[in-house]
């Protein structure tokens, strides 16, 4: 910027004229006078954002994370979905450290990865340090045009050990959904039954970097698109891992893409420390298996507990 602009808060001439007309005018509180209205401050922010974007004047990290774009464009539309539609309640936010690397492991469900978006938004808006969760996504995401670029810009990267270790050792909060497509695309009758947790690669990454694992249980996401069928032929045609049939999709067309307004709970559990196993712990397959099972069991038990406390799918 070429220098600070001076925006006159009030016109001295007009003020003087007003004062001469009403001599007995009650002086307004000074604070109110100096305060620019909210809409104008927002306009200033918007314009400076637009200028930065046009000039390319923003920073990207090595994974392609564009913080400026994420905070100003990608996150705000999630707010009504988070607060009004799903009425998400988070439990145990204090289990996420204020700084430093940590690995959040969560259950995956809901046909479309809205659970990942909501968890990410929840941490960014409700955690005292407003941390950005960096999620590890499937190859399919990054292969898809537009979606892949958007995923990288919002801080996501490919689910592979080099990337996970790199993020964790540079002190980032990493989110992983180890069930993958098996979890998100499972039929409605299997809801809240955790699928196999991949090959435990995420545990190895946490062990190697000595970062804590935070189990995260999400209740409510299973009911947003109850998947009652899977058209294999169409899935193969489009190259999708599954082609969902819900009570409203594809029957109602685009209307069927509106998620059902279930009430959500996201609980972050006690961190599981991984720095107590010493060096080369990641090379011990038995330890990796045991830790994977421990994380899985914790999430499953928390899910059952949250479900027994829930009285109604939509009202909570």
């Amino acid at each position: 910027m070429a220098g600070a602009r001076v925006i006159p808060l009030h016109d001295p001439e007009r003020d003087a004229a007003r004062r001469s007309r009403h001599v007995e005018v009650v002086p307004e509180p000074a604070q109110q006078q100096s305060e620019t209205p909210d809409w104008e401050r927002r306009l200033t922010d918007l314009l400076s954002f637009a200028r930065r974007r046009i000039a390319g004047d923003y920073q990207i990290d090595e994974f392609g994370f564009d913080r400026d774009l994420t905070e100003n464009v990608l996150m705000p539309p999630l707010k009504p979905l988070y607060e009004k539609w799903f009425r998400v309640e988070t439990i145990g936010m204090q289990n996420i450290p204020m700084a430093g690397g940590a690995l959040i492991v969560a259950n995956h469900s809901g046909t479309l990865p809205l659970d990942a978006l909501m968890t990410s938004y929840g941490i960014a808006s409700e955690h005292p340090a407003q941390r950005h969760m960096r999620m590890l996504g499937a190859d399919l995401v990054f292969r898809t045009p537009l979606l892949g670029a958007l995923a990288r810009k919002s801080g996501q990267t490919l689910a592979c050990n080099p990337d996970a270790e790199r993020l964790l050792s540079s002190g980032e909060l990493v989110g992983v959904w180890p069930e993958g497509f098996k979890g998100i695309g499972k039929p409605f009758k299997d809801r809240y039954k955790l699928q196999r947790f991949g090959r435990g690669g995420f545990v190895a990454a946490a062990l190697k970097t000595g970062t804590p694992i935070i189990p995260c249980s999400i209740v409510g996401a299973e009911e947003i698109y109850p998947m009652i069928g899977d058209i294999k032929a169409l899935a193969r045609l489009f190259g999708f891992p599954y082609f969902p049939v819900t009570p409203f999709f594809p029957l109602l067309g685009p209307l069927g893409a509106i998620p059902l307004p279930s009430k959500w709970y996201i609980e972050f559990g006690e961190p599981i420390r991984t720095d107590v196993f010493g060096e080369n712990a990641a090379d011990d397959p038995m330890l990796v298996f045991n830790l994977t099972d421990q994380v899985r069991e914790t999430i499953q038990q928390t899910l059952y507990r949250l479900l027994t406390q829930r009285r109604n799918v939509f009202l909570g």
Binding site: F142, G148, T157, C160, P162, D163
Partner: peptide, 12 residues
């Protein structure tokens, strides 16, 4: 490619 890690080290 899309299947590559985000950052390459010399041993990859």
């Amino acid at each position: 490619s899309s299947r590559d890690p985000a950052v390459f080290t010399e041993d990859m």
